[in-house]
């Protein structure tokens, strides 16, 4: 599905990563592991064409993503390390915005159920700026589910989460890969997930 060929990225003459090859297939879950500043975030942003690589190509379903970028984005959810929720809007307003953008067809009842399972339902009409950082992170992770995309890219998904949320997240990952989804995430935390492949960044 996703093929990365000979990817390198240089910033201010510092080689962040060099000649990187990677292929991700249906049902794969891959972790990028590395110390702070080892280039995990840079790699994810290069993969999603936000940063431009110095050399190398990225193929999605056999096509170079430079030419068919929106086809690639149509099947990709990217969870950044910071929250992309608008602080001045309520939780439901943010959810409706994301839902409309990804043209997902999840019903309102299902959304409420989801909020309940992440114990966010009492805050649905609260502005995001009044939530704690763990709750904001959980709200951000909900995007994975209601965007209904195939390829999940996550940057530090375990930050700010408590133990029960980590377990729910791991369960979500396992459900997704059992449905032929692809998960790629960067973290220095070691989660317990069946079939996890680890790539070490130095």
């Amino acid at each position: 599905m996703l093929l990365i060929n000979n990817l390198s990225f240089t910033r201010d003459k510092n080689k962040i990563f060099e000649n990187l090859n990677l292929s991700l297939n249906k049902g794969n879950i891959t972790q990028i592991k590395g110390d702070n500043g080892s280039g995990k975030t840079t790699f994810l942003q290069t993969l999603l064409n936000i940063l431009e690589p110095n050399t190398g190509e990225i193929f999605w379903e056999g096509k170079n993503i430079n030419k068919t970028i929106f086809n690639f984005y149509k099947e990709t959810t990217f969870i950044m390390d910071q929250s992309s929720a608008t602080k001045h809007l309520t939780v439901l307003d943010n959810i409706n915005f994301w839902r409309g953008l990804s043209s997902s067809n999840l019903s309102n009842d299902k959304i409420l159920l989801l909020l309940e399972s992440y114990s966010l339902d009492q805050y649905k009409n609260t502005k995001v700026m009044h939530l704690s950082s763990g709750e904001v992170k959980k709200l951000e992770l909900l995007r994975l589910i209601f965007e209904q995309k195939n390829f999940w890219v996550l940057d530090e998904p375990y930050n700010h989460l408590d133990n029960s949320s980590i377990q729910i997240l791991n369960q979500t990952f396992e459900d997704h890969i059992s449905k032929d989804g692809i998960v790629l995430f960067a973290s220095h935390f070691e989660p317990e997930i069946n079939g996890l492949e680890i790539i070490n960044f130095t």
Binding site: I50, Y73, T77, M80, S84, T86, K87, L101, S102
Partner: peptide, 17 residues
């Protein structure tokens, strides 16, 4: 500024705009 800082620009861009 705000949309740039919290990454909404990227999310909207990946939404196909």
């Amino acid at each position: 500024e705000e949309d740039f800082k919290n990454g909404t620009l990227i999310v909207v861009h990946m939404g196909g705009i």
